[in-house]
Amino acid sequence: MTSLSAYLSHMLRAEWIRSFFLVKTKPLTKPAYFMDYPIDTGKRCTHCFSCMMICPVPDAISVLMVGETEGEDIWKPVLYQGHCIRCGLCVEICPERVLASGDIIERVRQDSTYMQSTFHILVNEGKCAGCGTCSIACPVNKEIDPILASKGTTTSDEVIMRVKAGVMRVLHEEKCTGCKTCVLHCSYQAMDVARVIECLQYESDDETSATNEGG
């Protein structure tokens, strides 16, 4: 009873009532470093598949051909929000700045950072059944050999990989963009793409190029 009267006497003061109804707190804003799902900046995607390569989550982002204009294909990174963990790596690596989230692009520009990557495709021949799924699903192969994409029949040795003598053979590892489509769709778990990614900073002499790089 004593505490209740103490509360009432405290809250019924004119000063308390005034400060309660006329609060001067600043409205909440998202801090600059807050990362939401990446958004499309409208810039032209060159389907280099870097975003798919760097994405740490299976099936969170796919670069798809969404249509065509004046005879030219339009590509876009399509995000699957249920899978995306909002790490922002796709935004950071995209050389064309097609995606944006928080102040990632700004910070990349300020810090003059960039990423360099090399890939190594590993095929476990003991597990591979030569079904050809990886070579047909591969977005780079699809462009090099359209017959492979539409019929499942390899007609070119210019592709990254193809089936020979019943197992997958890697022919042009240097064309691999590390997108991991082959790894995700191999039902035998016979494929692996080792991705070596270095996060580097331009030297001060290179700052001009860094600015260009940053778009």
């Binding site: 591979c128 059944a129 030569g130 079904c131 050809g132 499942g152 029949t153 390899t154 193809r162 089936v163 020979k164 003598a165 019943g166 197992v167």
Partner: peptide, 11 residues
């Protein structure tokens, strides 16, 4: 040499 066949066919 066998091309395009899967492991079962190639064997």
């Amino acid at each position: 040499g066998v091309e395009n066949a899967c492991t079962l066919g190639a064997q």
